[in-house]
Simulated scan of single mutants.
Amino acid sequence: MTRSARDLLETIRRDLTHDDDANRLVPLVAAGRAPLTVIGDLAAEQHHVISSDWRSFLALAARATTPEAREFFTGLAQGEGVALARLADLAAATGRDPEALDDHEPEPGCQGYPSYLAWLALNGDPDAVVLALTVNFAAWGGYCGALAQGLREHYGFDDKACGFFDFFATPAPDMEERALAIVQSALDAGKDLALSHRHARMLQGYELIFWNTLADRVV
């Protein structure tokens, strides 16, 4: 009997659930304890992340073998374009202009996630990557929601400045269902998606390194 995509997704999520204190930066921002310079660094690092992920999603779309998977990755790439525009407003609220974002020297710890996603774009099975990304999106969205709330409450950021985080905190309502349909189709065809667990674990791990690299700058 073919395992359901939903069961596989929930199993991986349970296996990879982190402790509440694993991410050390988000609670600091949520409590107003992170300096504005670190939030500016967050925006600058995300500028590099988003620019890379945009290309990675397009590469995955080109390698996908079904129209549904191609549309999924193309949609993600389009979302990165929207996010990149909103990121400029977040950076401006921290006193950084577009040139400062381009000139920012990225930290290795912050760029592990996009580097691994770029590796997946070349080497990963696109259907397995769909599942791995879906596992990761829930955690990322939760972090973004907490950041948006903290920036409004403690830093006086307005809706425009929080637009980047608001965008990711409220993903397209049917995104997960579309992902599950892609994964289910692959499973029904007999594809082995066991590596999706590894891919999700790596993405989750690199994401935590991203946040905690920035948390180390809070003194």
Rank of each mutant, 00 (worst) to 15 (best):
A5E: 06
D7M: 05
T11E: 15
T11C: 09
R14Q: 15
L16R: 08
D20A: 15
N23E: 13
A30R: 14
P35D: 01
P35Q: 01
L42S: 11
A43Y: 04
A44H: 04
H47P: 00
H47K: 00
V49L: 13
I50N: 10
S52D: 08
A61Y: 02
A61D: 02
P67T: 07
A69W: 00
F72M: 14
F73H: 11
T74W: 15
G75R: 14
G81E: 14
R86G: 13
T94M: 02
D102K: 15
E105G: 02
E107M: 11
E107K: 10
G109A: 09
G109Y: 13
G112W: 07
G112D: 11
Y116V: 06
G124S: 12
D127V: 04
V130S: 10
T134W: 05
W140C: 01
G145L: 00
G145T: 03
L147K: 00
A148Y: 05
H154D: 03
Y155F: 12
C162M: 03
F164G: 02
F165R: 05
F167S: 03
P171C: 06
A172E: 09
D174V: 06
D174Q: 12
R178V: 06
A179W: 07
I182L: 09
Q184K: 01
L187E: 08
L187N: 07
K191Y: 03
D192S: 05
L193G: 03
S196Q: 09
H197D: 12
R198P: 01
Y206L: 15
T213W: 00
V218A: 03
V219K: 09
